[in-house]
Amino acid sequence: MDKDKELERLVDKMMEEAPLETPSSNFTYVVMQEVTKLQQSMAEYKPVMSMQSILIALGMLGIFGFYLFTTNSATTPAEGQVIQLLSDAKSWFSTKMPQLQISKTFSYMIGAIGIMVCFQAFVLKRYFNKRWA
């Protein structure tokens, strides 16, 4: 008990001798500037894919789709036939859609890619939630 009282007196004496620290006059301003910088760096939006890569992918997809619908197993259509097919969209879809055949391997590949994309989205969401929390 005596040791505790002596220790308490010693701490009280040291606290009386220590000067009271006060922050500088622009302390709040400096802190708010740092908070603003931190918020700006965290809220910066960076797209996963650039616009150029999206346009290239859409162009390639369009070319592939155009090739898929305009090619025939026996012959390829001439320029006039392609323009005629494009101008008559209703008959174009009705005549070309039955010819479109997708193999099982291709459908399995599309399904696997879809599952992988969903899984990666789930994993990345958890990662970023943990990182920013």
Rank of each mutant, 00 (worst) to 15 (best):
F122K: 13
Q84H: 13
S103D: 10
P98T: 09
S87R: 12
S94P: 00
G62W: 06
M97A: 10
F64K: 13
A43D: 13
S41T: 14
M49L: 11
Q84M: 14
I113T: 10
S107M: 14
Y108H: 04
S94A: 05
S87F: 12
T71K: 10
Q40H: 13
L58H: 04
K90Q: 10
S91R: 04
A78I: 12
L55C: 06
K125W: 12
S41C: 04
M109F: 15
P47W: 13
W92T: 04
Q99C: 09
V82E: 02
N129Q: 14
Y108G: 01
L86C: 11
Q84T: 14
A121Y: 04
S107K: 12
E79P: 11
S103C: 07
L61G: 15
Y127I: 09
I54R: 11
G62Q: 10
W92D: 00
L55H: 03
S94M: 05
F106E: 12
I115C: 03
I110N: 09
I54Q: 11
P98S: 08
S50D: 03
M60R: 03
L55Q: 11
T76R: 12
S103K: 06
L100V: 14
I63L: 15
V123C: 09
L68W: 09
L58C: 05
I115P: 01
G80W: 08
P47A: 15
V82L: 05
S107E: 13
L100R: 07
G59F: 06
A43Q: 12
I56V: 07
L124K: 04
V82D: 01
L38V: 02
F122T: 11
S53P: 00
S73R: 11
Q99D: 15
A121C: 08
A121R: 02
K125E: 11
M109R: 11
M49W: 03
G80H: 02
Q99T: 10
